[in-house]
């Protein structure tokens, strides 16, 4: 039986603005698609682009990164530094052939609950359009399967 494609999108959200916006969408009961999985980080400045590559390697169909608007950073300027890294990352991956629709970056303030929901809706729709992410090798993730647990301390 054919199933509709339900992508998994990993959203890296900063604790102070966008994570709060996502909470606000909740308390305001603004509905959006379930496909997003949030990874909370203290600041968008925490995000090493390697983590984003790993998200794609794990099998995420798309990623979303959102922090405080430029100028609003709880840690003064973390998002400014982040912006350069994220722009470079985005340009690199698009150049490498990854669909732009999978690589989503934005800023969303703690008051923008509605906007957060709209962004998620938009991103999910975009990713659905380009279909499942099949990995850099194009083979999909079915063969990997199982649990890839790294050795513990």
């Amino acid at each position: 039986m054919a199933k509709t494609f339900e992508p998994k999108i990993i959203a890296f959200l900063c604790n102070w603005c966008t994570y709060a916006a996502a909470d606000l969408a909740g308390s305001s009961r603004i509905q959006y698609p379930h496909n997003v999985r949030v990874v909370r980080v203290p600041c968008s400045g925490r995000i090493d682009p390697f983590l984003l590559i790993k998200a794609l390697n794990s099998g995420a169909d798309g990623i979303l990164v959102s922090g405080c608007h430029p100028g609003d950073c709880h840690y003064l300027n973390g998002n400014y530094y982040a912006r350069r890294r994220l722009v470079m990352f985005q340009e690199l991956l698009i150049f490498a052939g990854v669909e732009e629709e999978r690589l989503n970056f934005t800023w969303c303030s703690a008051a923008e609950g509605k906007r957060f929901a709209e962004i998620v809706e938009d991103v999910v729709e975009q990713v659905k359009k380009v279909g499942p992410w099949k990995g850099f090798d194009g083979r999909g993730f079915q063969e990997k399967g199982g649990m890839v647990l790294h050795e513990l301390s």
């Binding site: 430029p70 100028g71 300027n77 400014y80 530094y81 912006r83 350069r84 890294r85 722009v87 470079m88 985005q90 340009e91 698009i94 732009e100 690589l103 989503n104 970056f105 934005t106 800023w107 962004i119 938009d122 991103v123």
Partner: peptide, 17 residues
């Protein structure tokens, strides 16, 4: 170096508005 600094007006050509 590039990542050791920033400009508040840095471009973000493909970011979601």
């Amino acid at each position: 170096t590039l990542f050791a600094t920033y400009d508040s007006e840095d471009p973000q050509p493909r970011f979601i508005d």
